[in-house]
Every structure is written in structure tokens, then in C-alpha cells.
């Protein structure tokens, strides 16, 4: 069964120039390992291919039970000169949360 990330995790988007930063935090801490296994940098790169043109680095933070994706060349030049409606990319947290994951190995809920 497939589920959207939005059902098991939350996210905040931040920008630094042309770099997009997306956190991914499970609602239930016990789902952290599942997210680490399923939501790889490569999968996020495929999911956000229309938006992220550069490399994605994933930071796994076991103490915080959070994951972070730092995405290069992701904001059409960055907030100061971009033609995009959402030049900061603030809404892109919800683009990440649209990603679907397979629930066989299952999160807790």
C-alpha cells in the first residue's frame, strides 16, 4: 500500500540563495528509521526533478529524529532574481510531502 509522506511526517522549507533546504520530521519518532530507509536523496531528486537541478545531500539526525535535504540549484536562481511565483520556495515542503512511500515494512500508524 502506498501512502503520502504528508500522512506520517512534516516538513519546513528554507532557502539560502539558490539552495533549497527541506526538513523531514516524523510525527511519531518510531517512524524515523522507516523514513531513513525509504526517503533517500536519490528518491527525493527524482520526485523533485522539475524543481531541483543540482545535487541533493541528505543529513540524517538520529538525536533529533529528523532528516534534512540540502538541494543545490533548486530555486531558479534564488529569491532575489527568480521569476517564480514562490521565489523563496517556501511552499516546497508540501511538494516533498506529496511523495509516496510503500508501506510494506510499515510505519507505526
Amino acid at each position: 500500500m502506498k501512502k503520502k509522506l504528508a500522512e506520517i511526517a512534516h516538513s519546513r522549507a528554507g532557502d539560502k540563495g539558490n539552495t533549497l533546504i527541506l526538513s523531514l520530521i516524523p510525527f511519531q519518532e518510531e517512524d524515523f528509521d522507516f523514513l531513513v530507509k525509504e526517503v533517500t536523496a536519490a528518491k527525493v531528486k527524482t520526485h523533485l526533478s522539475h524543481q531541483v537541478k543540482g545535487e541533493i545531500t541528505r543529513y540524517v539526525l538520529p538525536e533529533l529524529k529528523a532528516i534534512q535535504f540540502t538541494c543545490l540549484d533548486a530555486l531558479a536562481g534564488g529569491v532575489t532574481t527568480s521569476l517564480a511565483m514562490d521565489a523563496h520556495g517556501k511552499s516546497l515542503s508540501y511538494a516533498l510531502l506529496e511523495m509516496e512511500v510503500e508501506l510494506d515494512s510499515g510505519p507505526s500508524q
Binding site: R12, G14, I21, S23, I25, T57, L61, Q68
Partner: peptide
């Protein structure tokens, strides 16, 4: 947690003029 990681490029190396801070074990 969301705000800690907000606009942070590398959570282990957050550069300010004062320090290279490490947020990983907050």
C-alpha cells in the same frame, strides 16, 4: 525541530561570524 533546521545548509556546521555551530545533538 522544524525551526532548528530552517535555512541550515549543514546541521553539523552552521557558520556565523562568531562560531561554526553544531546542531546535530540539540
Amino acid at each position: 525541530k522544524e525551526q532548528l533546521l530552517y535555512e541550515v545548509i549543514d546541521p553539523g556546521n552552521y557558520f556565523t561570524p562568531d562560531v561554526i555551530a553544531d546542531f546535530q545533538k540539540v
